[in-house]
Design a protein around this nucleic acid. Sequence first.
DNA 1: TGACATTTATCTACTAGTAGGTCAGTTTTT
DNA 2: AAAAACTGACCTACTAGTAGATAAATGTCA
Lengths: 199, 199
Amino acid sequence: MTTTSSKQRSGTAEQILDLAEMLIQTRGYSAFSYQDISDALGITKASIHYHFASKTDLGIAVVDRYVERFEAAFVAIAEDQSQPSMAMLDFYIEPYFGYAKTPDHVCLCGALAGEILALPPELRARVDRFFRAHQTWLTGILKRGAARGEFTLVAPASKVARLIFGALQGALLVKRTTGDAAQLRDVVTVLKLELSAGS
Amino acid sequence: MTTTSSKQRSGTAEQILDLAEMLIQTRGYSAFSYQDISDALGITKASIHYHFASKTDLGIAVVDRYVERFEAAFVAIAEDQSQPSMAMLDFYIEPYFGYAKTPDHVCLCGALAGEILALPPELRARVDRFFRAHQTWLTGILKRGAARGEFTLVAPASKVARLIFGALQGALLVKRTTGDAAQLRDVVTVLKLELSAGS
DNA sequence: TGACATTTATCTACTAGTAGGTCAGTTTTT
DNA sequence: AAAAACTGACCTACTAGTAGATAAATGTCA
């Protein structure tokens, strides 16, 4: 865990972050409380406030840590430029399948986006940046794939990127409600078929 | 507690429903309160409880009314069977563009899905039914379009339907956060291009 | 090494405010 | 008069957040 800007934190603080992340992904930001964490970890609310002065601070720390993990994945993907673009895309999509395997997780920023107007501005800005960064990254991969003759794009890469990203977010959302494990799988299948329709 | 079809309701009850619907679509179910409605309409919380005994009852009424509107649209689309399938699809997508025009609305059931685990079971079941019904309807339209030679499907209709539905939900979610009006438009453009790629 | 000071992490007990919800009584409408 | 709509006062539970005490490490220095 020696990521660039990841802070050194105590074990308790990490436990709080882990739990808060899970609670936001499953129940949402408005619907979880310090008491929930207090009960689950067997520490007092005051103790949580010691580590994270306000709920906003906790939310920010959760999102920043989450974003750092994705950024690390972007770097890891870029490291091996000999890979086909489809393999890079698969690597990117992996975490979505990870969430889809659980009965109740969606993307953290997808969950936050569902109640964006109820969030403190610091969180809003971070979700915004997350969405833009992912769509920008996807655009890059699509351009690479098109340039290498691996992908066939029916529209500009940036527009296709928007479709892919939105479809992944939406698929997780629908999957959790309907409980149908095939929701994400089917969507990814169709997306990949359409990318390689010309070859 | 008769949850059959559209019931006779007083003007105040309709105002409460309108506002609750807007608040859920913008802020989320957990993040809105009877006090919010009380303040906005200038009536007391007790008065809201007179019309809707519990928050759950209010949520159910909001969703049922919303679902009825969509069902009416399905019926309206089916009425003119001479239309091309793409026109039917456009008619279906129209409400999504309506929400995208506002700065802060997403699909009601999309908003509820974001915090599905925090919802009373009656609401969960309704969101589930909504998602399944829409994907089933989309599947039907896609099959019709394919049979009439209007659509080219790269995968079974049911899978393409999942992509389209998820992409629409996701696009609204992302659009609200980034504020980029082109998000939904771009996604719909690409989807339509892919449906008519063969013709 | 021993003494003192500081930091870290936790607790109990509390605040002010808000949540959903109840009920007896009053006003308005038919 | 009867039914429907509404109010004000109230309740209990919970919210985020604060104050002050405590005990154990850790750091500093004579």
